[in-house]
């Protein structure tokens, strides 16, 4: 079942890659892939384990800047830089998670928010290393041995291959005893502990996993656009990742894809409204939340099931009358 889903997904990627010739569309799809990674990571933390983070842009930025500084300024190989970025993010996420995940609910939100701001300010002010407000230029493009990944199409395939890989990882985690335990923590930490689940260890674990996903997305982003500035990793970006998760559907792997797609595409589609763009954008998000409070995935599935029962109603509505 899930193998078929992945095969279908892979096929879609390949077909999309072959059919797309417009470099703008390819880039848009690549951005969707990067955003899907961000949403997927946060969904593991927020949707499954029920722990909110309003500072995920920090890990996104940490991944992007670590790799960018090492490869652009210090001439490391980007792949070595990626490794360093992941190690650093793991370390930072672990150290942040230890005290932070003792909090929950609003307090955890505030805590992670603060962490996000600290990293943002650090990136902006440490200008000798990060370039400060004027950003960091000359981030090298990626290549795999002799194969250059500089072209839009090659990068598109790279990003979506990573997304597919992360999908598989997440699905395997979700379907395992660890996935069950995460959902149990979401539902009631106290009872989860009484089942023998080491709740604090698992929470730290999933926090680190989701931070690493964000760092991976940051790495892909930095080497795609070759220029990064602090504003790509500010508080609003954190909020946007949360929005993707909520709009797409909490605790849904495919919901991350839906949410990330919608939030990447909407601004592009709404350019026609010029000055009113943000108003329409906000209205659409509000409408979705009011009518599909469970997010797009659950909401659309429910609508589908409803439409099927309405369609069948003529047959079932006769039974009660016959009983009377």
């Amino acid at each position: 079942m899930s193998k078929m889903k992945h095969g279908f997904f892979l096929l879609t990627i390949v077909i999309a890659g072959m059919a797309m010739s417009n470099s703008y569309h390819l880039q848009l799809l690549t951005f969707i892939g990067i955003n899907t990674l961000l949403a997927l990571g946060l969904n593991m933390l927020m949707g499954y384990a029920g722990q909110i983070s309003l500072g995920h842009a920090a890990f996104y930025g940490l991944g992007a800047y670590t790799s960018a500084v090492l490869s652009a300024t210090m001439n490391w190989s980007p792949w070595l830089a990626l490794f360093a970025a992941i190690v650093l993010t793991t370390l930072v996420a672990f150290l942040v998670a230890l005290p932070m995940l003792k909090l929950s609910g609003y307090y955890l939100g505030m805590g992670t928010l603060g962490f996000g701001m600290i990293v943002f300010i650090l990136i902006r002010q440490w200008s000798t290393v990060t370039g400060g407000d004027s950003g960091l230029v000359g981030i090298p493009a990626l290549s795999l041995g002799p194969l250059s990944l500089a072209s839009g199409k090659a990068y598109f395939y790279l990003v979506w291959a990573v997304v597919l890989m992360c999908f598989v990882i997440c699905e395997r985690v979700v379907d395992s005893r660890v996935g069950r335990a995460l959902r149990a923590i979401h539902d009631g930490e106290h009872v989860a502990a009484a089942m023998g689940i080491d709740t604090s260890r698992l929470k730290v674990g999933v926090f680190v996993l989701s931070a690493v996903f964000a760092a991976l997305a940051g790495f892909l982003y930095a080497h795609l656009v070759s220029f990064i500035s602090p504003n790509s990793f500010d508080f609003l970006v954190s909020v946007r990742i949360v929005t993707m998760v909520v709009i797409g559907g909490m605790a849904s792997i495919w919901g991350s894809l839906l949410g990330a797609s919608l939030l990447t595409l909407l601004p592009e589609w709404l350019h026609v409204f010029t000055d009113y763009e943000m108003v329409v954008y906000g209205l659409i998000l509000m409408t979705i939340m009011i009518f599909l409070p469970q997010g797009l995935t659950r909401g659309l599935l429910d609508l589908y099931e409803q439409s099927r029962t309405i369609y069948r109603r003529p047959a079932t509505s006769q039974e009660p009358t016959a009983n009377r």
């Binding site: 005893r177 335990a181 149990a184 009631g188 009872v191 009484a194 023998g196 689940i197």
Partner: peptide, 27 residues
């Protein structure tokens, strides 16, 4: 322990609830 008020994991299936009880044994 069977906690007061059952405290099941409501959105999860019956089978998953039972499996959660065996969490440490899965490990």
């Amino acid at each position: 322990m069977v906690p007061e008020g059952r405290m099941l994991f409501a959105p999860m299936s019956v089978l998953d609830n039972l499996r959660l009880g065996a969490y440490l044994r899965y490990r």
